[in-house]
């Protein structure tokens, strides 16, 4: 992995007998996903006679994932492995914000406004961003999308804010 090497403080949280924290935490998380799936599919019908019920396959896969997760966590205990890597907050935060904004805005505000605004929000995720450049490129990109998607590909989507149309 090209990520920065282990952070000392992160390591100290975990007890010493965990030799591969990356695998250990990864395995635990898979087990958590599996338990969640087991809970979420608990209301579904199981086997009836010779045929599968709606819940048979999901529960089967969830149990399998639980075991595999345990296996991965066990590897993390028994074997020396990489430490937890460093997470940054800026990229994930602004990229997610940009995506969520787009999802909320596309219906009421249309493609033009939401694409441009989302571009700028996403651009905040990097400390290399130069604002004038970002605004110009964002505007060009928005104009390009506004022609490309509805006209060339014929995909129906609102272009402009709803309150301006009605």
């Amino acid at each position: 992995m090209s990520d920065t090497p282990s952070e000392a403080p992160v390591r100290s949280i975990l007890p010493k007998w965990i030799r591969g924290p990356q695998d250990f935490i990864g395995g635990l998380a898979m087990m958590a996903v599996a338990l969640f799936a087991l809970w979420a599919s608990s209301d579904l019908q199981g086997m009836h006679g010779f045929s599968f019920g709606a819940g048979t396959a999901p529960r089967m896969f969830a149990v399998l994932l639980l075991l595999l997760g345990a296996g991965v966590a066990l590897v993390g205990v028994l074997q020396d492995g990489p430490h937890l890597s460093h997470y940054s907050w800026r990229g994930p935060l602004f990229v997610s914000a940009s995506i969520v904004f787009f999802a909320l805005a596309i219906r009421p505000l249309g493609l033009v406004v939401s694409a441009f605004a989302s571009f700028l929000i996403a651009a905040m995720g990097s400390n290399e961003t130069k604002w004038l450049e970002a605004v110009v490129v964002g505007a060009c990109l928005t104009a390009g999308c506004a022609i490309l998607f509805p006209y060339i590909l014929g995909l129906p989507m609102p272009m402009f804010p709803r309150f301006l149309i009605q």
Partner: peptide, 23 residues
């Protein structure tokens, strides 16, 4: 990359929205 990544985000977002028109 500072210009590339927001563009990819926008293209992906529009692309996914267009599949089912579902935010």
């Amino acid at each position: 990359y500072r210009l590339m990544f927001p563009s990819i985000v926008i293209f992906c977002a529009i692309g996914i929205y267009s599949v089912n028109n579902a935010p």
